[in-house]
């Protein structure tokens, strides 16, 4: 499948299945789909998968800042040079998106990263534990949010460095 075919199929799919979306073509090889309803998300992913456009390349989190009060989650699906991006907006307090793991197994690490870096709760994630951050990372501190300040966590921990000599396998 070449790039133009992939983009055509994806935009047809979006138009047919979901009505409440805005699509955009920011670059010739990209199709941005803004989903306004969270319920449309899973069906459209299944649709992409069925059309063999379902290679999930990455999940990007974006913090639009405390003044907007929203986070944006971007799902990038790549086929040839085409990049189809599904954009979800979630509120900054208590954000939640459905898990894709049952449809796309490789989404698991990406969703774990999204969860700990932005505090976006991933509904029905099979293994919701830390992936990059240490287990003793303070709760409700999400490093990639805009209001997280560099250095605050690190110094606090360093002052409290104490090795108790206990075995821990983590």
């Amino acid at each position: 499948m070449n790039t133009q075919e992939a983009l055509k199929i994806a935009s047809l799919l979006v138009e047919e299945w979901v009505w409440t979306t805005e699509t955009e073509r920011p670059e010739p090889n990209r199709l941005d789909v803004k989903l306004t309803k969270l319920d449309d998300f899973i069906p459209i992913v299944v649709g992409l998968r069925v059309q063999r456009l379902g290679y999930l390349s990455a999940i990007t989190g974006l913090d639009l800042g405390p003044e907007v009060g929203e986070l944006e989650v971007l799902y990038h699906f790549c086929t040839a040079a085409a990049v189809v991006t599904l954009r979800l907006r979630v509120p900054r307090d208590n954000p939640s998106v459905p898990s894709l793991c049952s449809i796309i197994p490789s989404a698991e690490p990406f969703e774990r990263e999204l969860r700990e870096m932005f505090g976006v709760d991933v509904d029905k994630h099979p293994n919701p534990i830390h992936i990059y951050l240490p287990d003793d990372w303070p709760v409700d501190t999400y490093p990639l949010r805009k209001d997280f300040e560099q250095g605050t966590v690190s110094t606090a921990v360093r002052r409290g460095v104490k090795h108790d000599g206990k075995e821990n396998n983590g």
Binding site: P143, F148, G151, S154, R158
Partner: peptide
């Protein structure tokens, strides 16, 4: 140096 997850060198530890 200064990143939130690093200790800035071996001799800190």
């Amino acid at each position: 140096r200064g990143c939130y997850n690093v200790m800035d060198g071996i001799d800190q530890v």
